[in-house]
Simulated assay, not measured.
Amino acid sequence: MSSRVTLYGKPGCHLCDDARAIVQTVCAELGVEWTEVDITQDDRLFTEYGEQIPVTFVDGKQHDFWRVDPVRLRKALAG
């Protein structure tokens, strides 16, 4: 099973820590797989998302950046 949610972030980012907690909770509640990508390990990702992190993708499409709204994430995963 592939991950439906991908969280792009970097170490030491407090917004990423907040987003991770929300993604982890919502995905656990719904039984949805998720993964996290450290953008500092990929120059292209760092250039593309460095000013927007954390960035979340749902089913391969950008869903949110900077903050994750748990209600909005649940709705996207239910649809």
Rank of each mutant, 00 (worst) to 15 (best):
M1L: 05
M1K: 05
S2G: 09
R4S: 14
R4D: 11
R4N: 03
V5L: 01
V5H: 11
V5W: 06
T6M: 02
T6I: 09
L7E: 13
Y8M: 12
G9T: 12
G9P: 12
G9N: 09
P11F: 12
P11D: 15
G12E: 11
C13S: 11
C13Q: 11
H14F: 05
C16T: 14
C16I: 11
D17C: 09
D17G: 03
D17N: 08
D18P: 05
D18M: 10
A19F: 01
A19I: 02
R20Y: 12
R20P: 10
A21C: 13
I22T: 14
I22L: 08
Q24F: 07
T25I: 02
T25P: 00
T25L: 14
V26G: 04
A28W: 03
A28I: 09
A28Y: 10
E29D: 13
E29M: 07
L30V: 06
V32T: 14
T35R: 13
I39S: 01
I39T: 09
I39P: 01
I39C: 06
T40N: 10
T40P: 04
Q41R: 15
Q41K: 15
D42G: 14
D43V: 11
R44N: 07
R44G: 04
L45K: 11
F46D: 01
T47G: 14
E48G: 09
E48R: 15
Y49H: 14
Y49E: 04
G50E: 15
E51V: 12
E51P: 06
E51Q: 09
Q52F: 13
Q52P: 00
Q52W: 09
I53H: 07
I53F: 05
P54H: 08
P54F: 06
V55G: 03
T56I: 12
T56S: 13
V58K: 00
V58A: 00
G60K: 06
K61W: 05
K61M: 03
K61N: 08
Q62E: 14
D64C: 10
F65Y: 14
F65P: 00
F65D: 03
R67E: 02
R67V: 01
V68Y: 02
V68D: 04
P70V: 13
V71E: 03
V71W: 13
R72D: 12
R72Q: 13
L73C: 02
L73S: 03
R74A: 10
R74F: 01
R74E: 05
K75C: 07
K75F: 11
A76C: 08
G79K: 05
G79Q: 08
